[in-house]
């Protein structure tokens, strides 16, 4: 199978992820969109690593996984704090800070 197909798939996943971030209301879903973007990037990295016959891309993918995990910890903590204070996880309800 052509390696470029993987790149196409990754691009589609990345686009879906960004669309999710920009369009969806629920902050958990938005957050999942960001995770999807990161994982699409991992696929790109691994595919390029294969194309170049080079291990750096795979290495980078591991780092991305660790960083994504750290981001989940902080992100979910913030989302839960907001939810406990306001009983809502909608992105639209977070609107006190507009002049």
């Amino acid at each position: 199978m052509e390696l470029t197909n993987y790149l196409g798939l990754a691009a589609i996943l990345f686009a879906i992820g960004s669309a999710t971030v920009l369009l969806r209301r629920n902050s958990i879903v938005v957050f999942m969109g960001i995770e999807l973007m990161l994982n699409a990037t991992n696929l790109v990295l691994v595919t390029f690593a294969r194309m170049h016959g080079d291990i750096t891309g795979q290495l980078l993918a591991f780092f991305v996984m660790v960083v994504a995990a750290a981001e989940v910890v902080v992100g979910l903590a913030i989302i839960i704090t907001i939810f406990r204070a306001r009983r809502s996880a909608s992105v639209d309800d977070v609107n006190l800070l507009q002049s």
Binding site: L7, F14, G17, S18, V21, I34, M37, L38, A40, T41, V44, L45, F48, M51, H52, T56, G57, L60, V64
Partner: peptide, 15 residues
């Protein structure tokens, strides 16, 4: 979101 975009950019430069 911005760091995910940046990461994708890094992946493309790597490619």
């Amino acid at each position: 979101f911005a760091s995910a975009l940046m990461l994708f950019g890094i992946a493309l430069v790597y490619g």
